[in-house]
Write a protein that binds this DNA or RNA. Structure first.
Lengths: 375, 375
DNA sequence: GTTAGCACTCATTTCTTTCGAGTGCTAATA
DNA sequence: TATTAGCACTCGAAAGAAATGAGTGCTAAC
């Protein structure tokens, strides 16, 4: 009796039978919707696996041994462990394809968001939160930013506008007000010089040496050069700093696992304080890949009993980012992953300059987990 | 026996005696910190009004009759009613002046926020929330926005940048990419024309007629004119639309009155959905005035059992706005009003162009309520 | 290998009881 | 006439006790 041999042991390694898989999947599926421990009887009835509750009880007991499930207390049903979710996400989960209607719905909403003004990423974060009913986060970062072009607009003797165009075609400007007078010729000269020596370089290359030599070359005794250089650095730095948006934190309160205000508050303030979600420094993952971090797989203490689902996008011009949600470990990974993946793909295209909406290709969904088992 | 004559009647109108005022104030003060009904004994001990608990009980009973206090149940202490708070705010409250250290602390933090990039108002909202530990809101609106200056930067035959400077010296830009080629001369010409006929006017004055005549005058067959005009309108419109920021919603969960997740959620999502806080269309109030809306005085159903404290600022150039917090009716009106007032004054100065920090004038605090009793 | 049956466990719900803070009233006091 | 000590009374909240029932593990029969 190979099965009973495992009884009483600590997390036995054994091949998981087909039936066990089915049962585990059924447990997770059920738990996702009810948030209550699921019992053998309910399983026997609902999930159509032709066997009685007693049999299922045996299987459940073994799944507990194997570490996929756990019991809150002796006389309760089973609840998936992090390992159980991992297995579910990696192998068992039936990958959700969005229906055509859903795709269209999503598309039109995405469209609407993107067409409006500037704040693309934060807007999409908002959208993600709405669609999933979980707090959403969006992160975007640029790798190597450089300036493509300088213009300095002479407004009056004491005022000018610096306009700077970056290599990804975003344009930034700043109005500068000086206590001293500048003549238009100087402004022209500076503009030329900056275009000559400050374009195509990253912020670390803007050194005091460079600034000094420019200043001398332009014969600038007023310190204009350093003002402009400072702005250039500021723009480059702010563009290179990854920005994170968290929206819809309050939706956490919808979830039964956050009924405790303290627990909810802890997580919410962690989120809005901009605490890191992914291991800092870790790369963003391949584009169009969805990653799932389940409970203890998260590094941040505050997230250890929540899950994170993120999809990465890549605008092609060096702008990469993530869009994701945070919620209880019990989340509908499948649907959420689909939706996020969709949004990420939409972002990739849209930011990348292409104007076409994400097409009806329901969606290719690549879900990847945190493979490194221990960390 | 004038006092006992009121016994048993419905909300009797009578002059409120000095001692009653003192007691009422003490009740509110105490309730603000404990959030628990306050009883006669505690009052007799703490607040130094030389009389026994029995006397106080009599007074309390009358204050209940007069509508300033209420009892959650027969054997509990007293809790201020909205009317009680109103009275407290209007007459009884001992107006808090910020200490010098506090002023300096606030100043340096405000300074820091304002000196950093663009997002002044949202940043100050964040600051307000931090300082008060309540959700904060900031609203800013401009009355009459006009464009002061147009510049069009020729990038290449298909690309140019529109730079627009508003009458309050903010600068906006947009990169335009065209499918057809434009020559530099045309760009120059358009720039001149726009400066001639589109400056100093509001968005409603940008009519199709005006656009058409400009287009004809510039001999523009490519539709450039309308692109630029559209951008101008967009900028004007977006600038004129009052923008609201709500930050720190999660701090609501600190408050015992929002321990119920549903209640908290209701309010939080109302706040982050951008629901109006002040009666829509109502003017923002005089500058440097702090307004308090207590419980039922709010018009939004969702706010009927919360209070709102807002201070208004005025940058002088037509930019006006509010900065405020939302919380339980039991809030420390006095301190919060001081802090908000401080921030508002800081904003007024800073946005108004003056560079000096708010000085050590601890602060003049004008608190005004919702005087119209019924609405 | 599966399943019906049954005793057992234990969180949850419901009902009681206890406890005490706080009241209102009365009668004595200043 | 205003204040106060004293006391019975009220009623929510906390603590304890009992009932409930979902779900289990195990055994023995199929």
């Amino acid at each position: 009796m190979p099965a009973s041999a495992s009884r009483g042991c600590e997390r036995v390694q054994m091949e998981i039978s087909e039936r066990k898989k089915k049962i585990l999947a059924a447990v997770v599926d059920e738990y996702i919707v009810t948030a209550e421990p699921v019992g053998s009887k309910a399983l026997a009835e609902k999930a159509g696996l032709g066997c009685s509750s007693a049999t299922i009880r045996n299987e459940l007991a073994e799944l507990v041994n194997m570490g996929y499930l756990e019991q809150p207390h002796t006389s309760a049903g089973r609840v998936p462990t992090a390992l159980g979710y991992r297995m579910y996400v990696n192998e068992l989960m039936q990958k959700q394809k969005l229906s055509l209607e859903e795709t269209e719905e999503l598309n039109s909403r995405l469209e609407k968001r993107l067409s409006e003004l500037d704040n693309t990423i934060s807007d999409v974060s908002r959208l993600a939160s709405q669609l999933t009913n979980y707090p959403a986060l969006a992160l975007s970062s640029r790798s190597q930013v450089t300036i493509k072009r300088f213009d300095i607009i002479y407004v009056d003797a004491n005022t000018f506008i610096i306009v700077v165009m970056l290599d990804n075609n975003t344009v930034r400007n700043k109005l500068v007000h000086l206590p001293v007078s500048v003549d238009e010729g100087m402004v022209k000269k500076l503009s030329t010089m900056f275009n000559a020596s400050f374009t195509g370089i990253s912020d670390s290359q803007i050194t005091p040496v460079l600034i000094n030599s420019t200043e001398r070359a332009a014969d600038d005794s007023l310190g204009l050069t350093s003002v402009i250089a400072a702005f250039a650095m500021e723009v480059l730095a702010s563009e290179a700093t990854p920005s994170t948006y968290v929206t819809g934190e309050n939706r956490l309160l919808n979830q039964p696992e956050y009924r405790d205000p303290d627990k909810a508050h802890r997580l919410m303030s962690y989120l809005s304080s901009g605490g890191y979600i992914l291991p800092p420094g870790e790369d963003l993952g391949d584009t169009n890949e969805v990653r799932v971090l389940i409970g203890p797989e998260n590094i941040a203490e505050e997230l250890k009993d929540s899950s994170v689902i993120v999809a990465s996008y890549d605008a092609g011009d060096g702008t990469k980012g993530l869009i994701g949600v945070v919620g209880p470990t019990r989340m509908d990974y499948s649907v959420i992953a689909s939706k996020l993946s969709f949004l990420a793909q939409g972002l990739s295209r849209r930011l990348g300059g292409g104007e076409a909406p994400v097409e009806g290709m329901h969606n290719k969904l690549i879900i990847k987990g945190d493979d490194s088992d221990k960390r």
